[in-house]
Amino acid sequence: MASTTDTAPPGPAAPGAQAPPLPDDPAGLKVVPARHYARWAAAAAVVVLVAQFTHGLATNPVWEWDVFRDYVLSETIVQAVWVTLQLTAYATVLGFLLGTVLAFMRLSRSPVLQTVAWTYIWIFRSIPMIVQLVFWFNLSALYDRLGFGIPFGPVFWSVDSNSIIGTIGAAVIGLTLHQAAYAAEIVRGGVLAVDEGQLEAAAALGIPRLRQIRRIVLPQAMRAILPTAGNEIIGLLKGTSVVYVMSIGELFYQVQVIYGRNGRVIPLLLVATAWYVVLTSLLSVAQYYVERRYARGADRTPPPTPLQRARRFVRTLRAEAGRRHRPVVPFKPLGDIR
């Protein structure tokens, strides 16, 4: 930059023009924000695409929204959703219970327990869920009677395996065993994430072993377990749809039955989609609050929930509006910007 006079101010001057010296009062200068033309163009393009898609959703007759409306809250579908929820709930609770036991077996000092747990996880992670489900469906071919007795010895009591397990039972067992293998690794990861000093402190205080796990280790492990467990449960909710191979009346099976009958494939797939999205969203919200609960003590001041944030926002809006309605105390937004 060539400056011809000594009085020229520091900093870039407009090309070809001689910039006047900087004024003493900085308020006399106007700040022009940078213009992001490329960013604006990209945003505009995306907005157009989204609008086009939304318009298509609303106007393309193939979606058949009237059929969607007829079925989405119909009794058959709601009942099927209920079956899906039951399958998810049972498999989650039982899967994580068994998974926790397996995790502590792998962490135990007994090589036998370690090996058994490792082998279980290895096998059940290796079998595709659908293959395993069909196996359970055909359990009676493998073991036609189940009973209690002395191992390798006499049996005191037994039943026909199909009569106690049934299709729903077989599905729950299949989902549970599959889930347990994954849950075991998630729980183990969480336990390993807890500082070893915590167990030492608990041991030094003479707290009984089971209580150390339940009261000291698991609540802290939950912080690491929950995000992945949330993934798993959501995956399981959607995973229940493979149970259709066993002709169980869960959501996806029922939807297929209906469109097999009336040929309205697209709107009925939309029905299933809508329900899965709603259920998954509910699970995500639940996950947020459960995570918050287990974060107690982790932050010096816990961050506000979205609800608290919304309330605070409404409160400030009201306060601002109130101030605007009272002209006696004029409302001034942050400083004087001209």
């Binding site: 500082d195 000093g197 915590q198 030492e200 402190a201 608990a202 041991a203 030094a204 205080l205 003479g206 707290i207 009984p208 072993r209 000291i216 609540p219 802290q220 287990y294 107690r296 003590g297 982790a298």
Partner: peptide, 23 residues
Amino acid sequence: EKDVLKQRTHIGFVFQNFNLFPH
């Protein structure tokens, strides 16, 4: 282990890193 834990209740231990239960 159960009996060792019982013995430890007679022995207080203060760690360098406190090891308080944060939750």
